[in-house]
Design a protein around this nucleic acid. Structure first.
Lengths: 121, 121
DNA sequence: ATCCCGCATCGACTGTTGTCAATATCGACG
DNA sequence: CGTCGATATTGACAACAGTCGATGCGGGAT
């Protein structure tokens, strides 16, 4: 068995599931499963700290920032910041890339367009 | 003192506050207060039941529906449905109108456009 | 007036979430 | 290889949110 089969699934993000299932939330009545998928994305946005983190990342040059740059401005403990970034990551709103000791989080513009599309924009 | 001063404020919805304060969440770093306001709107969307209710309302003719029409398809107790509709109402995503014994909830398209605008669409 | 029906509110319970301190992991650099 | 710095994970705790049964309220109809 190759090592690829051990961790082949990058764990589809909520955004990706939403793109695949919920083209238009307000266009027609969505199913219960579709609602669960889409709600995960909005729930990730439904916290002030996460919105600030996302906003700060988006406002940074290259639309990316490392954790160390986010802790002080957000005013919370490092584990708390890591926790929120993980929620944003699993939602598919940001991507993570390790460079050296640092972890850089980058905004995923496709995620934003997926949301606006789901809202019928 | 007129009776208007007793209940003059229709209690500004979260959407209205967001329109007034957060033109572009992803354009520049938003403040803590702005994040709190905007997070309330997304939190209202961050529940599967509320998303389904909103979707069903939007898919109804005239983009409105009364509570009695929503209870059975959503499969939850009537107080629970009323609770979720209240959350959507206070978020500014829907409007309520009483006609006879029935309460009709209507989608507020301005709210949807306000969200997509805040996301920089 | 009274009863009924649709909806809102209340009280209680349970599961989830945000937060932090402590600890583990992981990479870089001597 | 051992230490140090940056992140992630764990465990615990308080606060919050979703759900329901019971109850309250208000408008029609009899």
């Amino acid at each position: 068995m190759s090592t690829d089969t051990l961790q082949p699934l990058p764990m589809a993000t909520s955004i990706e599931e939403m793109q695949a299932c919920c083209p238009d939330i307000l266009g027609e009545a969505i199913s219960e499963d579709e609602a669960i998928v889409a709600a995960r994305v909005f729930k990730a946005l439904g916290d002030p700290t996460r919105l600030r983190l996302l906003s700060m990342i988006a406002a940074s040059e290259g639309q990316e920032a490392c954790v160390c740059d986010l802790i002080e401005p957000v005013g919370l403990a490092q584990p708390t910041v890591s926790h929120h970034l993980k929620v944003l990551l699993e939602a598919g709103l940001v991507a993570r890339e390790r460079r050296g000791s640092w972890a850089y989080y980058r905004l995923r513009p496709e995620a934003v367009t997926a949301i606006t599309r789901a809202l019928g924009a």
